[in-house]
Design a protein around this nucleic acid. Structure first.
Lengths: 247, 247
DNA sequence: TTGCCAATCTTTGTATACAATAATTCCGCT
DNA sequence: AGCGGAATTATTGTATACAAAGATTGGCAA
């Protein structure tokens, strides 16, 4: 059990500024996203409190927020754990994201200001270069930035917020279910095509780009229905939190 | 101000069973929905704690959850207040709900089990009868039940949860922006047509029913842009405006 | 050995005390 | 009166203490 994930979570915590629940949320979310906190990892309140140098009150608030973001699983009288979405939920999340992000993209087509387009272009280019030099963490960072920009610039803020949530959730399940041996989930040209559709003011083309992109992404996952880790753990009595070896 | 909203919130609280944060969330949400807690109402933690007989810890948790549900506005170091969505957000919420609920309805067409259909039919009938006897609270109750059933039975649970959230938010803004003098927001036959489309297994018809229904609902609101306080701030902030400020 | 139960320990749930910050009030001044 | 501005009050933020519920461990018996 000597996981020592505490140090991982704390990586790069700026000393000096007082730590609030927001900082904890950001750090944990990021750690989960970067797959440094694998699903099922227990997150006891006192431990997190020690790591961040705050008391349980702050940690509890952070955990509640993380639970509402679907990042952790918080059950009464039990230790909070990093959530492990099931295969079914993964498919459903992709479906929902296609719907929402497709709509946002179609709304955005031809409506983006010049600076927004250049920012988007920079991220697309950055992603391509990161992929070229096989820097997967950086590539993921750029990819997230692209979709986060879409969410931010959505003229419909409600849809934008929903998209932010869905991007987070799909990122988590991608990390979870990525095919073994697959170095990257980069899809050549997808984002470039999207950018072109947005710049060219073609709503339906933009929507189609999003749909294709997300279908492609989903196809890169290993979604065969060996039943969900959660179910197994529940059945077995959840005595073991660490890695579940298949077969 | 002697508002005495405390008694309103507590209406029908069963004594005996221990009160948890969930109970508070449900009660406050319901009170907001039923317009017994108007937007802007302050919800101090100690007061709520006294009302429900629990300490601030529990109340804080409940308020955090309500904030994540967009029911209350929680800003640092300030009293939580019942949220008052802007007109722009109202339009955006309706747009989002059309998108999501339309998709859910299309997924559900021809897929609902017999008992679900009868339950749905009962609610549709109940709504019609409540409208006939001008019992608006009961009518709202039935209408909520209809859409809640759709969300519950959604084969896509992610979309279902999103729909639940959007139904809540639209209900709040309907209560907020309903045209004065309008006794009810009942739209004759809308739900019946939806039920027929669902039963008949016509996905696109079901989606269209939802779209029409929500457009109709939105049209019943008074969404003229008497502008938000933000404009005032902008005027007072910029020095070049044609000065009507005295002295 | 295996299974079960009790004791122990860990972890969360709740209440409360104190600190920090925003809102209010009241007073003196113009 | 009208208007700052400081003292006061109200309210939230954080930490901590204790209670309650799970999880773990060890021993005992079949």
């Amino acid at each position: 059990m000597s996981n020592a994930w505490q140090e991982v979570v704390l990586a790069g915590t700026r000393t000096g500024g007082r730590i609030g629940d927001r900082d904890i949320v950001d750090k944990v979310r990021r750690a989960v996203l970067m797959q440094r906190l694998p699903p099922g990892t227990k997150l006891p309140e006192v431990t997190l409190g020690d790591v961040f140098g705050v008391s349980r009150s702050v940690v509890r608030k952070a955990l509640t927020r993380l639970a509402s973001e679907h990042v952790v699983d918080q059950r009464p009288n039990q230790v909070a754990r990093v959530r492990a979405p099931s295969i079914a939920e993964t498919r459903e999340t992709f479906h929902a994201r296609r719907l929402v992000e497709g709509e946002v993209a179609s709304l955005l087509a031809g409506q983006l200001a010049a600076d927004a387009l250049t920012a988007l272009g920079a991220e697309v280019e950055g992603e391509a270069r990161a992929h070229a030099r096989s820097d997967e963490p950086a590539r993921i960072e750029h990819s997230l930035a692209i979709h986060h920009l879409l969410a931010e610039h959505s003229p419909n803020r409600v849809l934008g917020a929903m998209l932010t949530d869905l991007v987070l959730r799909t990122s988590i399940v991608i990390a979870l279910y990525k095919r073994r041996g697959l170095a990257s989930c980069y899809l050549e040209g997808d984002h470039t095509a999207l950018l072109a559709a947005l710049e060219g003011g073609e709503p339906e083309a933009a929507r189609r780009c999003i749909h294709d992109h997300l279908h492609g992404l989903e196809a890169l996952l290993d979604l065969r229905s060996r039943e969900t880790p959660i179910d197994l753990m529940a059945i077995l009595g959840s005595s073991d939190a660490a890695g579940q070896t298949p077969g």
